[in-house]
Amino acid sequence: MTAQFPVVRSRRLRRTPALRRLVAETRLHPSDLVLPLFVKEGITEPQPIASMPGVLQHTRDSLRKAAHEAVEAGVGGLILFGIPAVKDGRGSAADDPAGIVQKALRDLSADLGDSTVLIADLCLDEYTDHGHCGILTNDGEVDNDATLERYASIAVAQAAAGVDVVAPSGMMDGQVAAIRTALDEAGYGNVAIMAYAVKYASAFYGPFRDAAECAPQFGDRSAYQQDPSNAEESMREALLDLDEGADFVMVKPALTYLDIVRRVRDTVHVPVAAYQVSGEYAMVEAAAAQGWIDRERIIMETLTSVRRAGADIVLTYWATEVARSLRD
């Protein structure tokens, strides 16, 4: 041993699991997690989703069971996506008081009370027969302002059904302002808005479109979702949504946009969410099924990286499983 050997030995604090836990800079807690859930009208048994092993299209009854399990595990919130039995050009089922998400919200509100946060995705792609996120013009373009009227109506319907937070995901200009105005005028000023402020036109959404049965019937969504090559645009979108009344902002997808999560976190002064999307989930599950990776370690590593990047809230299909693991 020479006198020049470093006095500082960083490995001292890595020596045991207890020491590593004590000095951990980033912590993941069950209440940081939000579980996405799909509920489908007209089915009598939950339906597996081939591209998302372990994820289901739920009946109302199986949804209630899954929600109870998540809450018991300590998951912080649930976000609902609906698949109606009938779709049309204006997404009529999205704001129908008897629509599948409104029914599910009433079920869960009655069952769970204030033991969790009920969030509803607010968009039209799951409800339209063309699969786009809004009303189409005669030329097949999404009509931004006509779509805002539909979003406002959907927000009020979800609020009436008992939602705590609406989550507009369509990336229409002015969507947060239209929704905030509609909620306030209808007497739902306490309903919060979690804006999909930064939503990229990503290839990672493929399995979700199987789950929600919402793939566009023509074209794609690049005219209204963000270009993956842009970063400054993300800051502008987040600040615009905050100016319009958003209470949270979200970045989607998460793992390939951790730089954006960090930039948003450093820019805004509200909670930041990040969505670990279906493609991220499917890749891990597929590789794990082949025995190529350590599934549990990969799941925890990816979620920790999203938190480390600055996300306060992580939407993940592994929420219940991870919450149980953390509590154990």
Rank of each mutant, 00 (worst) to 15 (best):
L258R: 12
G99W: 08
I293K: 00
V101A: 07
R27C: 14
A177G: 13
D247V: 06
A311Q: 01
Q57S: 15
R60S: 08
L80G: 13
V86T: 12
G187R: 09
I83N: 00
T302N: 13
G174S: 11
R12M: 06
A273M: 13
R262K: 14
I49W: 00
L136N: 01
S234A: 15
H269S: 15
I100P: 01
P97I: 12
E149M: 11
V34T: 11
R106F: 04
I260M: 07
R15A: 14
V86G: 05
V268S: 03
G279D: 10
A157N: 07
I298F: 08
G140K: 00
A167E: 02
A110H: 15
Y200I: 08
Y127W: 07
A201K: 07
D247F: 05
I179H: 10
A323T: 07
A201Q: 09
D266Q: 12
L315C: 08
Q276V: 11
M1R: 13
V23K: 07
Q4T: 15
L122E: 09
F248T: 07
A197Q: 05
E69Q: 11
V7P: 00
L183V: 13
V86Q: 14
N138G: 15
E141K: 11
E233Q: 12
L56E: 10
V191S: 02
A178T: 08
I293A: 10
